[in-house]
């Protein structure tokens, strides 16, 4: 008797637990739908024909899959007077992002190495100045930067954009490496010094080999920031040197001809693919960069 009542309350309890569990998964699933819905709509719309779009069902699958929109978005859509699609601008972004990521990461590594391991009077002040620099709204440097790029003969050029991204990326890259190197015992540097190794030698053969994780985090962070940048891109480029985000915005907001929503969506996916790819392949490092960039001095 007692046994039976015991099992019955127990099973009642676990039935409640199972219901709770189901509710939990249901809620998680609904939230997942909320986050996935825009991506789903973008992808399906990009494969639809304009006629099908005009019948106005956002979430239906395409009745007939067509690649026309993708072809137009890549090489035919108009961004203002030019009608070459996003292709040339995609390559602009590549040409901007790769050197800017490389240079800012390298300088950030050296800076972080000095601030963390070669403390001298003023190094902390330097770091504090850099840290505040991470937080300024870039609007406050736009006007003088535009003039400076003009003076340097870099206005509206790709090297000009690389220069801007390197400068305003330094704060974060220095922060990342400094926080990483600070956790490496300074005895290591001291021992290497005793052995006669110099500043660069220690960096090259002791610190760099230890740095792979933070290099990955920094490269991903910088790449995402620079690839997704719009403010610098629209402020300091001209026709022909615009990055892909600016070109995408021009396609979407171009007023000539009929609105081709499928082309807009295909262009948006193309512009998003590189960073999405990085996220899917190296999500762990991406998240680490986000949280490291957001907290702790």
């Amino acid at each position: 008797m007692t046994d039976m009542s015991y099992t019955s309350t127990r099973s009642g309890n676990s039935a409640g637990k199972i219901a709770l569990r189901w509710g939990l998964y249901l809620m998680l699933g609904l939230f997942a739908l909320f986050y996935l819905m825009p991506l789903f709509v973008m992808v399906t719309t990009s494969f639809k024909s304009l006629e099908e779009i005009r019948t106005g069902d956002l979430i239906s699958l395409p009745r007939e899959v067509t690649l026309d929109a993708w072809r137009t978005a890549w090489s035919g859509a108009c961004t203002g007077i030019q009608c070459e699609g996003v292709r040339p601008f995609f390559w602009n972004s590549v040409q901007i992002a790769i050197p800017a990521v490389f240079i800012s990461t390298l300088i950030g590594a050296l800076n972080g190495y000095v601030v963390a391991q070669w403390r001298f009077k003023g190094a902390n002040l330097f770091f504090a100045l850099m840290l505040f620099g991470c937080f300024i709204p870039f609007q406050v440097v736009l006007l003088p930067m535009a003039r400076m790029l003009g003076l340097m003969g870099l206005a509206g050029t790709i090297p000009g954009l690389i220069f801007v991204h390197v400068i305003y990326g330094l704060g974060f890259t220095t922060l990342f490496f400094r926080n990483y190197y600070v956790s490496i015992p300074s005895e290591l540097t001291k021992a290497a010094k005793v052995d006669g190794a110099g500043f660069f030698r220690i960096f090259w053969s002791v610190f760099l080999p230890l740095s792979l994780p933070i290099i990955v985090v920094t490269v991903i962070w910088q790449f995402t920031q620079i690839w997704n940048d719009f403010l610098f891109g629209i402020s300091f480029s001209q026709a022909g040197t615009q990055p892909v985000t600016v070109a995408l915005n021009n396609i979407v907001n171009s007023t000539t001809g009929i609105k081709a929503y499928n082309v807009d969506m295909a262009a948006a996916i193309i512009a998003a693919l590189p960073t999405l790819f990085v996220y899917v392949v190296a999500g762990k490092y991406f998240v680490r960069g986000l949280t490291a960039g957001s907290v702790k001095g």
Binding site: L39, V41, T245, L248, D264, M265, A268, T275, F286
Partner: peptide, 18 residues
């Protein structure tokens, strides 16, 4: 978390359409 990897321009374009 994936939306965080997207450019705001991409996000804006998608929602403008939705």
């Amino acid at each position: 978390l994936y939306p965080m990897a997207l450019s705001m321009i991409v996000t804006g374009t998608a929602w403008k359409w939705i």
